[in-house]
Nucleic acid binder design. Structure first.
Lengths: 350, 350
DNA sequence: CTGAAAGCGCTTACAG
DNA sequence: CTGAAAGCGCTTACAG
């Protein structure tokens, strides 16, 4: 009943322990005859390599880095908190993870951050990326040193990363549109949209997905040209007030980007009925606004799920084995009724 | 830079390895003086116990059982698939998990299933539970043998399980109501509801949550008394047809229970415009119906997330340590635009 | 191409 | 109450 070990396999195959090990791990320098015998024994006994023992023996330590933009953005604060908490937990499993700050959304700064990583001997790094050619050379160098690189939240140039963990922002925009459309119940309407910057790929994609669905499935609705906000709460505040007061009779607001605090403040202070409101990312103030009935929907990318996945995928890539079955990642819809509890982790009872 | 080991701690504390081990693991029979010295050394060196090494040394194998109702219910098929896939992956980590069948939703059958577990030497079991006193004695016996018991999807009597992994069904019903309400855009409406059985606690809770929100926040809407379906597709088919044809002018349908195939068929064949439709659990046919535009929303409990959590929580409880940071569990809303990919697990690229 | 042996960080008898 | 030693299943030099 006990699982067969490598020495069981070696014995069954009639070779030494070391030889069995060589074929299990494809270390080469083994006669074909021995390979065949070992393979047969593995299959017959149902041998499964004990990863924990292997890691112990080779003193495996997973050194991970997370490159995260600095700044007071609530979403990235949330990501950081999850990384720290997860890193702390996995210390006992030989994982050393740290957050490396890079100044926000500048390709040059990000490139410099990556260059700094090169000689620091990490096994894997997760990077909140950008689509910039500037990053390609340093990323290739990292990879050539055997460092596993993945994109997190925002993708890196495809050729130089092993995986991307983040939502599809076109899907996120489509989802926002579907629900906004539903909320009009077939009636007419005008939707005011806000974007931080059209250069930000995630913003552009969300807006595109949104417009696609409205155009295709809600012919009674019009999407007004987006107002540029630079993700600045005060810009959003101003823009929201003017959208609310305009005689265009706006029936819905959709903010593709950040800065929601300004939008929420403006709505909270407005008198009378308000348009249907959709924003992205569940953080303190957007959650509160949902609870207070100032906005209707929050489309969220579940940074907790993303971080969870990042650790699992990095580990799997470093070990060159398949990742465990993980929950899928997709834009998640929150209304005021299905909000998560305050605590990060509280299923268990005392 | 290398992490301190227990022998570093022992040396620093001036005691033997074995003594250090005794205080780390609270094995008792240690002089207070030694305890203090070891504690101090642990704190000073920042010692973290290596769980993998400990498990290796004691040949730890986690024997897990999942008690799942039999039957062709698509939701439980999905749960089973996730359990099997996860179990397979974790074989390499010394986890042996198996599914134990119990015939569906009979307290007697479930009790017998639990009794059968008692001498089988599991470390942890996850049970799709029922609220029945019948279960208490066998569950206590299991617990007295040191087996960790958790409720999965549907809770067990609270006193005899260590954790519950499942959504809050009141929240699920409230969420369905919020979106159904939104979809009326302030206009009037009548909502036909369907339940499998009012004895099923999850059904009753969803219905209650649904009615609460409609009554509180959507005064223009009426919830019609639920039609009992026994979760039988043909019953649902019949009931849906009559709801669609009735001159009550139903504006929305909400099925609290299973059997959606019948509802979907009926809607697919109906001519003209249809009411707003909300069902539970994303499985093959509900996903297809969403894609085809036959229904509008699916509220899902993410069995993949639940299974993932179940493995992690069982392991943590068995080891008596804190579980890793895990994604929260809450009712998830699907529209046709944010559906997960077909595959169970496909973030990585080849 | 093959094998014997030490060691990874722990736990578990066993002997004092 | 304390310690020395074997062993968990593997990897890694090292010697042939």
């Amino acid at each position: 009943m006990a699982s067969p070990t490598l020495s069981d396999v070696a014995q069954a195959a009639g070779v030494s322990y070391a030889t069995a090990d060589r074929v299990i791990n494809n270390r080469g320098n083994v006669a074909q005859k021995s390979i065949d015998k070992v393979r047969e024994a593995v299959a017959r006994l149902g041998y499964v390599r004990n990863v924990a023992a292997a890691n112990l023996s080779r003193k495996r330590v997973y050194r991970l880095a997370f490159l995260i933009p600095t700044g007071s953005n609530a979403f990235f604060r949330r990501i950081r908190a999850h990384i720290l908490q997860t890193a702390d937990h996995f210390k006992a499993d030989g994982i050393r993870a740290q957050i490396v700050d890079v100044s926000a959304f500048s390709a040059e700064a990000l490139r410099d951050g990556i260059v700094d990583l090169i000689r620091r001997d990490f096994d894997g790094v997760a990077i909140v990326g950008l689509q910039s050619q500037l990053l390609e050379t340093p990323l290739e160098e990292l990879r050539d040193q055997g460092v596993v690189v993945i994109g997190l939240v925002s993708d890196l140039p495809q050729g130089v990363r092993s995986a991307y963990i983040g939502i599809d922002n076109i899907v996120a925009g489509r989802t926002a549109a579907r629900l906004t459309g539903m909320a009009h119940a077939g009636g007419p309407g005008k939707i005011q949209t806000f974007v931080g910057s059209m250069e930000a790929r995630d913003h552009a994609e969300r807006l595109q997905g949104f417009c696609d669905v409205i155009a295709a499935d809600f012919p009674n609705l019009t999407v007004l040209p987006p107002i540029l906000t630079k993700d600045d709460p005060s810009e959003l505040h101003r823009a929201t007030i003017s959208a609310l007061s305009a005689d265009t009779r706006v029936t819905a607001l959709y903010n593709v980007g950040a800065g929601n605090r300004g939008l929420i403040d403006a709505i909270g202070k407005a008198a009378g009925s308000r348009p249907f409101c959709v924003v992205h990312e569940l953080v303190g103030h957007s959650k509160q606004a949902l609870t207070d009935g100032h906005i209707d929907l929050v489309i969220d990318q579940r940074p907790d799920v993303e971080v969870n996945r990042a650790f699992a995928i990095l580990r799997a890539l470093i070990d060159d084995r398949a990742p465990p079955p993980l929950p899928d990642l997709m834009p998640t819809i929150y209304v005021r009724d299905n909000l998560p509890a305050e605590t990060l982790n509280d299923t268990m009872e005392a």
